[in-house]
Simulated assay, not measured.
Amino acid sequence: MANEEFVLGGDLPVRRLGFGTGGLVGPGYWGPRAGPDEARELLRTAVERGVTLIDTADNYGPDLAEELIAQALHPYGEQLVVATKGGVVRTGPDQWHVAGRPEQLRGQCEASLRRLRLDRIDLYQLHRFDPAVPMAEQLGVLAELRAEGKIRHIGLDTVTAEQLRLALESTPVASVQNAYNLLDRTSAAVLAVCEANGIAFLPYYPLGSGALARESAAAVASVAAAHGVGPGQVALAWLLHHSPVLCPTPGTGSPVHLAQNLEAATVHLTARELELLDALDG
């Protein structure tokens, strides 16, 4: 079985199968999805079931996901890592724009600290590079925030392999978050850079926006049937087997789906099954 833990940034051990909070807010990441009591209970259940990495962003809601995390889980357990993101501003359902000026990033980080009730954010991820702002300025303010003790580690979201290599020339990077799943491996070059540098890769859309949980190729269906699980669990298990730096954080608003997602860590794929699944790329 794949290793269950990854040491984030060289000093933060987390269980590789985490929990993403995008499913706790409404469609298009706007407004609430359900009652706050249900969302808070789902967060508590995830932690009770062993999740040690919670992935969120200031624009989920906006603000709502971070507020729910604090309401449900503060004071945080010693093993719990809360990762959040800044660098974009959401103005409506599926409507957002990048905001990477240093003063914007600093303000967003400090607002996340207040909402999460933290003195330091363990992993602060730049949600997008702002093409109108030099990369050095965006990374520079994050490095300043780290030096000030407001963040512990820097992460990047939606980057190319070349951008990641350039970033590494100026600052350590603890994580990358790009789209990656059983049927979408367009970020394979980014994954290779992460593997070479010990960087966590938090694949977003690990279930292909739910498509992999609803339907699958014949190979996925056959593997799922052999293990008595669903195709979504096979897709998550494949990520855990595929690379030791992959740390999927599937999101959901359903307690049933949460349990199914976490059970993926117990699916032991054989070498033959991995060959069948590896051949599905694209």
Rank of each mutant, 00 (worst) to 15 (best):
A2I: 07
E4Y: 11
E4T: 15
F6D: 02
V7Q: 12
G10T: 14
D11C: 12
D11E: 15
V14Q: 01
V14M: 05
R16N: 12
T21G: 11
G23K: 07
G23N: 09
V25G: 13
G26I: 09
G26W: 07
G28A: 07
W30N: 02
P32M: 12
R33P: 08
A34M: 10
G35F: 04
G35I: 09
D37A: 14
A39I: 02
L42W: 01
R44P: 10
A46L: 03
A46G: 01
V47G: 07
R49P: 01
G50T: 01
V51I: 01
I54N: 07
D58W: 09
N59E: 14
Y60C: 06
P62R: 03
D63I: 05
L64E: 11
A65E: 05
A65M: 10
E67L: 12
Q71A: 15
A72R: 06
P75V: 06
G77M: 12
L80F: 09
K85R: 13
K85I: 08
G86F: 03
P93C: 00
P93S: 03
W96H: 08
V98I: 08
V98N: 02
G100V: 00
P102H: 04
P102Q: 07
E103G: 01
E103A: 14
R106V: 08
Q108T: 00
Q108R: 02
E110I: 03
R114L: 01
D119S: 13
I121D: 02
D122Q: 13
L123W: 01
L126T: 09
H127I: 08
R128Y: 07
F129M: 10
V133T: 13
E137P: 04
E137H: 11
L139P: 04
V141K: 03
E148A: 15
G149M: 08
K150G: 06
K150I: 06
H153N: 10
G155N: 10
G155F: 05
D157C: 15
V159D: 03
E162I: 07
Q163M: 13
Q163W: 07
Q163G: 12
L164C: 05
R165Q: 15
R165T: 13
L168N: 00
L168T: 01
L168S: 02
S170R: 14
V176A: 02
Q177P: 11
N178T: 11
A179T: 14
A179V: 13
A179H: 13
Y180N: 11
S187N: 08
L191S: 10
N197H: 15
G198A: 12
A200V: 08
Y204T: 06
L207G: 10
G210R: 03
A213E: 12
A213W: 06
R214G: 03
E215R: 15
A217D: 11
A218K: 12
A226G: 13
H227I: 03
H227E: 03
G228W: 01
G228D: 01
G230Q: 10
Q233A: 15
L236T: 00
L236G: 03
A237T: 09
H241P: 09
H242G: 00
V245I: 05
C247R: 04
T249P: 02
P250W: 04
P250N: 06
G253H: 12
S254P: 00
V256N: 02
L258T: 05
Q260I: 02
Q260L: 13
L262S: 09
L262T: 09
E263Q: 11
E263D: 11
A264M: 00
H268N: 04
T270W: 00
A271S: 14
A271W: 00
L274M: 14
A279M: 03
D281F: 00
D281W: 08
